[in-house]
């Protein structure tokens, strides 16, 4: 297991120039439009954006699960430990999925099979990846249940006998059963109540540290990012518009969209503070505006922003922003 943890570059995940489209009869949905991302070993990256930003499509590409034939990966590489997932054959993928990279889905109500016991569902992956017989795999499934805080005696129960929070724990147990290098959590607590969310986030954090996992946390909630992530990527219309450490993003956010997200949130300390929503709507991904995709909603838009790709500025070693405001400015221009 130890040797599983080392990667040459120090990055467990490296995504480069990824472009993914969904093609239907007469439309092309531009879901992911050239993104670069890295997650260092043992670190957690928060991928933040609103509905339709391309977060889930990005996540699916890491497992090479972008639905075909409508989903098309036009270019790019997705390397986990240096191996390009997009160029693996079916057999390699089977060994890879669930073993090297596992995923927790948003809705625990639909992620589980209603006619199999939770123990069997956890044991399934263990039996395949660890090459164990059924009884031994079930044994291990029971200890996984204990690990996520469910008495192992409940392994023979069915999903409907569990509450939402408990189901999400089962989903986490399935994902962690094979001790993956990278855990992808796609809005893992969105369907849960806030006190249960607190329990589940604490559990994920503890297990991640215990097993030295890297994690991609997909969320729209900046509060959750502040709680569990080391670095943050802000995604808009299929592009990463700002990337940095927690301090970079929370203390020195530099992209107008990132600012807009923070300004839209109610301030818990000052309930009379006015909300300043971002004007307009998320663009239609089948018909993205030219230039910077954010320009129709941006308060800082200049004629330059309506044409051509926006300028990419490395503000510091860790902090990158994609915005023409930084063509001349080296620091926060908002």
């Amino acid at each position: 297991m130890e040797e599983k943890r080392t990667a040459a570059s120090g990055n467990l995940l490296e995504i480069e120039n990824l472009v993914i489209q969904y093609v239907s009869n007469d439309e092309i949905t531009h879901a992911v439009n050239g993104i670069d991302l890295q997650i260092p070993v043992g670190k957690t990256l928060g991928l933040v954006g609103e509905t339709g930003a391309g977060k889930t499509t990005t996540a699916l590409s890491i497992l090479n699960l972008v639905p075909a034939p409508q989903g098309r990966i036009l270019s790019g590489t997705v390397k986990v430990e240096g191996n390009d997932v997009l160029r693996m054959n079916e057999k390699q993928l089977q060994a890879f999925r669930g073993n090297s990279v596992a995923m927790i889905f948003q809705d625990p109500m639909t992620a589980l099979n209603p006619i199999k016991t939770v123990g069997d569902q956890i044991a399934e992956g263990i039996a395949v990846h660890k090459n164990l017989n059924k009884a031994a795999a079930f044994e291990e499934a029971m200890s996984m249940l204990e690990l996520v805080g469910i008495p192992s005696g409940r392994a023979r129960e069915y999903p409907h006998q569990f509450s939402g929070g408990m189901k999400q724990r089962v989903v986490i147990a399935i994902a962690l059963a094979c001790n993956p290098l990278l855990l992808i959590a796609d809005e893992p607590t969105t369907a849960l109540d806030v006190t249960i969310q607190a329990q589940v986030l604490k559990l994920i954090n503890e297990l991640r540290v215990k097993y030295q996992m890297s994690m991609l946390m997909i969320t729209h909630d900046l509060g959750i990012v502040a709680e569990v992530c080391d670095a943050v990527a802000i995604m808009y219309a299929g592009k990463i518009v700002e990337y940095g450490t927690l301090e970079d993003i929370f203390d020195h956010f530099s992209h107008p969209y990132t600012k807009g997200l923070f300004d839209s949130l109610p301030n818990i300390e000052d309930r009379r503070a006015e909300l300043k929503p971002i004007k307009g709507l998320i663009p239609d991904p089948t018909n993205l505006p030219g230039g910077c995709s954010f320009h129709p909603r941006c308060n800082y838009c200049t004629p330059e922003c309506t044409q051509g790709e926006p300028f990419v500025r490395q503000l510091s070693e860790t902090h990158v922003v994609r915005c023409n405001l930084y063509r001349d400015a080296g620091r926060n221009a908002l």
Binding site: Q197, L201, G223, A226, L246, E247, F250, F262, L265
Partner: peptide, 10 residues
């Protein structure tokens, strides 16, 4: 309940 709110600050 109030303490469980994920606050967007670091």
């Amino acid at each position: 309940l109030l303490s469980a709110i994920p606050v967007p600050r670091i």
